[in-house]
Design a protein around this nucleic acid. Structure first.
Lengths: 349, 349
DNA sequence: CCCTTGCCAGAAACCGGTTTCTCTGGTCTA
DNA sequence: TAGACCAGAGAAACCGGTTTCTGGCAAGGG
């Protein structure tokens, strides 16, 4: 196992200068074929790989992409990361994982990332409250791509889904089933996607000539518990005030609704139809299986990192191309399951 | 936003040499308090952070830990990574994620990791077939910690669970419910944990005076499909030859069994009791909820990276401590759910 | 009182590459 | 045939730190 070979060693073995070896390795055309071959032969024979740290120092940027992500156990994140990892494998980059614990102060993480200048690009997944800070990073020249959430502030390249249209579709699905009183559990206002989904919900109602009933717009926080709590409160109301369907801004909150319904003996979908958002891994296994908007998480990860790699390869410097803002909307699809289906009259046990 | 400050700049501002600045930053005691304070003040004021690449080159090792992991969507992996990320946050290290696609050739990844010498330590999660190659890395002096799987070849530090005892406990649970004919779906032989779980199963039977029936030991591959297929075949047998319980070596295969049972009208647990292994996130949501062995994945990640960080901080060089082999067994717990419970005679609809 | 010892800080070498600068030698043109 | 030009390769500077080497100065011992 050939250890700690340096470019100097290769130079000596090939009887050339280290400058020539460097040029060969970097495909600099100004090397005579004879020498090139001789060097390449040695490089091959000894399996020489230039020290990445030294390469980085000497000015060539390093092959690291930072990925800023929420805890991997969050819904969708691991699928996104899978997509990222799949694409990275085909590139010459490696990824540095910065997991963000949102309960802590976060902005210092960004400062560290910038100060250490260890990564040549950054992929921010669901940055949420970090988005404003990212804008600074972007302006300072760091190639940057966002996934989901925030409609990119400034002109930061962005990959995500059309939350408005998707929520519109989900709501229309309920409307077409004949529901008139449709509640919506909104996500936290700090998440742009939550706001957009609410917007899609309102548009759909409006297009069907309905005005949203403020009493049916419930403020959640994307966690299971908030879904449970809100549903519980809802079921405490006068039965006449109940909605006939609920559209939750994510699956987690829909799970909470399901739990509350089970506890309170409310039947889904007979008494109330339920639709979520995300197509989280558990959605299909709920009782009843949850109708939801499928997000192409893996594809999102793949596309986002592809964009970033292109950006890095295109202009190895730090200038931002700024030709036209990159904004990739991936298609979602509504997955209709039992939670919104009118049940068949007879069910075999 | 103060950009590209170098140690030279700080030296000039503090009116000292860069050597002194370096010494201050590295807590070298041989600096007079007066100078130390002056330097620290400037460093604070300008928010100077030394360039990590240069530091790495100059001989101090870099703050990167490589994490070799299967795709994050694999059961348990994202929880492990969460634990890893949580602990890393409190350390001065960052993690480089090497996602392994097992369908490809893998050993070249290890070569790259070694050759680039970008990381100062490596955490290998479920390395499976890569384990032999890892041994080489370990012997070449790279600090290394394994998670789960393989009972560490050589004396590589290792964190995991006692698969034998856990499988023993799961099997005993079934025996204590009165089951005599207990089938076991084995995982791939290439996974050491699969072999160990099989061993626990056999021990439990033996301790109850039973000899395992070879016809009830089924060879699976840890995937859902193999569970479904094997169960399907099983249900094709003469009813008298059926087991009364199945212990699957992981939850995925148990899911397959559940699907097959649903398709074939076999009732779980009335006709056949079922126990899995992992306490995968879906296990509690199956119909019926799956009895399984809970693995403390997050804790495993946390502990493993803690061990690695200790190793790195203890001997910054490459020598292996080799005091006593590190081998941490974390406790598992059997989570009894409906799939193995004798159902209550009456169920409200 | 002079010399040795020890402490502290600056100068310089070094890590392993990249890139600029310089120099050599051959070709083209007048 | 001589001068200009150009291609190609080596020497050296550089990236931003760490570490060794060296030297000045004060304290302590003979």
């Amino acid at each position: 196992m050939g250890e700690k070979l340096t470019i100097q060693d290769i130079a000596r073995l090939a009887k050339v200068s280290k400058a020539t070896v460097s040029r060969v390795l970097n495909h600099n055309p100004s090397v005579a074929p004879v020498l090139r071959d001789r060097v390449l032969q040695i490089v091959q024979a000894y399996g020489f790989v230039p020290n990445v740290t030294a390469t980085g120092l000497a000015g060539g940027r390093n092959p690291l992409i930072g990925v800023l992500a929420p805890p991997l156990t969050w819904p969708g994140i691991s699928q996104i990361m899978r997509g990222v990892a799949e694409h990275i494998e085909d590139s010459s980059y490696e990824i540095v994982l910065y997991s963000i614990n949102f309960e802590r102060d976060h902005s210092d993480v960004l400062d560290r990332i910038l100060a250490l200048r260890m990564v040549s690009g950054l992929l921010a997944i669901l940055p949420g409250a970090l988005a404003p800070h990212l804008k600074g990073l972007h302006q300072s020249g760091l190639p940057l791509v966002l996934i989901d959430d925030q409609e990119a502030p400034g002109d930061i390249p962005w990959v995500g889904v059309d939350n408005v249209a998707s929520a519109y579709q989900a709501t229309r699905h309920l409307l077409e089933l004949g529901h008139q009183r449709i509640a919506h559990i909104v996500g936290p206002r700090t998440y742009h996607c939550a706001v957009e989904r609410y917007e899609g919900y309102r548009h759909a109602l409006a297009d069907h000539g309905l005005t949203p009933d403020p009493a049916l717009v419930l403020q959640g926080d994307f966690e299971i518990e908030s879904g449970r709590q809100l549903a519980w409160d809802l079921f405490d109301r006068d039965r006449a005030d109940w909605p006939s369907a609920i559209f939750a801004a994510n699956d987690q909150m829909a799970y909470g609704v399901l739990e509350a319904a089970t506890q309170r003996g409310v039947r889904i979908p007979e008494d109330i139809a339920l639709v979520g958002f995300d197509d989280h891994i558990l959605a299909a296994y709920m009782q009843p299986p949850l109708t939801t908007v499928h997000q192409p998480f893996t594809e999102m990860g793949r596309r986002a990192v592809a964009v970033l790699v292109d950006l890095l390869d295109a202009h190895p410097g730090t200038a931002n191309g700024a030709v036209s803002p990159i904004r990739i909307h991936l298609p979602t699809s509504l997955v209709v399951r039992a939670s919104s289906r009118t049940p068949s009259p007879i069910r075999s046990p």
